[in-house]
């Protein structure tokens, strides 16, 4: 691995040539209910976007549409140029709030799922994920079953399973929502570092403003009924390893306040 300490500049400036995710005037209706309306956004390749908003604002729906699990009623969703559901699904890995690990598979077996789905034999797939398990700080736990792990570790295995799919686009739907605040802070820090080491295009849905700022270099604020994009804010914060330092930073506080006020208006 390359040294993780070599801090990278915010992605916004780096990859402007390659578009990762592109939504143009997207609308999604379920019957007569409009879940998402007039949503347009763009994220460069290997950029990190956070979407915040009150519950029911359609942020999870946007994620499903990007992922290729569902199609918009109107508008275009493009993921690295792909527009059909099948092609989008091939480029995206999706991870929901609950870890949804398979209880009959141990840590390595769960992590190896995507590889096995690609046709790798069970044993070879296990071998291949061992390196990733090690990098995720889970070595020694390969043969533990989900019921033997704490909530934070289960979620980490779930991350591992998502990453092992080798997709360029990672979609997280409130991945830390079910965790206690200490575990959550730890995993946020850990995910930041993991993404620094192996950059991917990520979209993170959350209703935690701090989390949105920590993990996104651009934050999209949404309003509910119908789900609309209220504003997109670029996050330019000093590069630092420490989550605590970042949160203490005056600019961070200012951005947090700005986001909170936007969310207040929308509610």
């Amino acid at each position: 691995m390359h040294s993780g300490t070599e801090v990278q500049a915010p992605a916004a400036g780096r990859h402007q040539d390659a578009v990762g995710i592109d939504l143009v005037d997207v609308e999604k209706r379920f019957g007569s209910t409009v879940a998402v309306s007039g949503a347009s956004l763009s994220l460069p390749r290997h950029g990190r976007m956070s979407i915040v908003g009150p519950s029911g604002c359609g942020k999870s729906t946007i994620l499903s549409m990007i992922c290729g699990l569902t199609d918009p009623t109107d508008g275009v969703v493009r993921v690295e140029g792909a527009t059909t559901m099948k092609e989008r699904l091939a480029r995206c890995a999706w991870m929901p709030q609950r870890d949804l690990l398979l209880p009959w598979r141990d840590v390595a077996g769960n992590a190896a799922l995507a590889l096995e789905n690609h046709g790798t034999s069970k044993r070879a797939a296990r071998e291949q994920v061992l390196d990733l398990i090690d990098r995720f700080g889970l070595s020694g736990f390969e043969k533990k079953y989900p019921h033997q792990l704490s909530g934070g570790m289960r979620q980490r295995v779930s991350f591992l399973r998502t990453m092992a799919a080798g997709k360029d686009v990672l979609l997280f739907d409130e991945p830390f929502g079910a965790l206690d605040s200490i575990t959550r802070a730890d995993l946020q820090q850990w995910l930041r570092r993991t993404l620094d080491e192996a950059p991917r295009t990520t979209v993170l849905v959350t209703h935690d403003v701090e989390e949105a700022l920590l993990l996104g270099d651009t934050v999209v604020v949404m309003s509910a009924r119908p789900g609309r994009i209220v504003q997109q804010i670029d996050v330019r914060l000093p590069q630092t390893e420490s989550r605590r330092e970042l949160i203490r930073h005056p600019e961070f506080a200012q951005l947090r306040d700005e986001l909170l006020s936007l969310l207040e208006v929308t509610e």
Binding site: C92, R98, L100, N117
Partner: peptide
């Protein structure tokens, strides 16, 4: 939701049946 996760992990219908 697990079925959806499996689909984004490139599982075919057969793979979902067999592994999940």
């Amino acid at each position: 939701e697990l079925i959806k996760v499996m689909r984004t992990l490139d599982a075919s219908r057969w793979a979902i049946l067999r592994r999940v």
